[in-house]
Amino acid sequence: MSTRRCSRSSTSIRPTSLSATIPSAKAASRRARWSRGGVFEQAILDDAAAVICLHNHPSGNPEPSREDIRITRQLAEAGGTMGIPVHDHLIIAGTKHTSLAERGVID
C-alpha cells in the first residue's frame, strides 16, 4: 500500500524450505518455513506504507490453523518494528475467505 492507501504492487513469496520427507501436502503446508524478511523485502523496496498478506487453502476450508495465527502475529510484530504495519492476513479458500484482522489476530 502506498501512503495514499492504494495498492501499488503485489509480490508472491514462496516457502524458503520444506522438509524432504513430508508424507502429504497437508503436512507440507504445516511445515513450510516462511521468511519474514521475504514478506517485507518488496514492501521496503516499494516504500510501502503497509502490507496485506494472503494465502490460499486448497482444501476449501478458510479456517486459520494455529500456524496461520502464529505466523500472522510474527508478521504483525515484525512489520510494526519496521514501521510497515500488516493491515490484514487473508485466507482464500475457493469462494470463501477469512480475515485475520476481523478475527482480532492483528491489532
Rank of each mutant, 00 (worst) to 15 (best):
M1A: 09
M1H: 12
S2N: 00
S2T: 14
T3V: 11
R4Y: 03
R5S: 12
R5M: 13
C6P: 00
S7P: 02
R8E: 11
R8D: 06
S9G: 09
S10L: 12
T11W: 09
S12E: 13
S12G: 11
I13F: 08
T16E: 14
S17C: 14
L18G: 06
L18C: 10
S19H: 15
A20C: 11
A20Y: 11
A20W: 12
T21Q: 14
T21W: 11
I22L: 13
I22W: 03
S24Q: 04
S24M: 04
S24L: 05
K26V: 14
K26A: 11
A27E: 14
A28I: 08
S29R: 15
S29A: 09
S29H: 13
R30Y: 10
R30N: 10
R30L: 11
R31V: 12
W34A: 05
S35I: 04
S35R: 00
R36V: 04
R36A: 06
R36E: 00
R36I: 08
G37E: 06
F40C: 03
F40T: 03
E41S: 10
E41C: 03
I44S: 02
L45V: 12
D46V: 08
D46G: 01
D46P: 03
D47A: 13
D47H: 11
D47T: 09
D47W: 02
D47C: 06
A49Y: 07
A50I: 00
V51L: 02
I52P: 01
L54V: 04
L54E: 10
L54N: 13
L54S: 14
N56G: 14
H57G: 06
H57F: 09
S59L: 05
G60S: 09
G60T: 12
G60D: 06
N61M: 01
E63L: 07
E63D: 11
E63Q: 10
P64E: 06
S65V: 04
S65H: 00
S65F: 05
R66C: 09
R66V: 13
E67N: 12
D68A: 12
D68W: 03
R70C: 03
R70Q: 11
I71N: 10
I71G: 05
I71H: 10
T72A: 15
R73F: 05
R73W: 02
Q74G: 01
Q74E: 08
L75D: 00
A76S: 12
E77P: 02
G79A: 03
G80I: 06
T81G: 03
M82T: 01
M82H: 02
G83T: 04
I84C: 01
P85D: 04
V86Y: 06
H87S: 05
H87Q: 07
D88N: 12
D88P: 07
D88W: 05
D88R: 07
H89N: 09
L90V: 14
I92M: 09
A93H: 10
A93Q: 09
G94P: 10
T95S: 08
T95E: 11
K96E: 14
K96V: 01
H97N: 07
S99Q: 05
L100P: 10
L100F: 03
A101K: 15
A101H: 14
E102Q: 13
E102F: 04
G104K: 00
I106F: 02
I106W: 01
D107N: 15
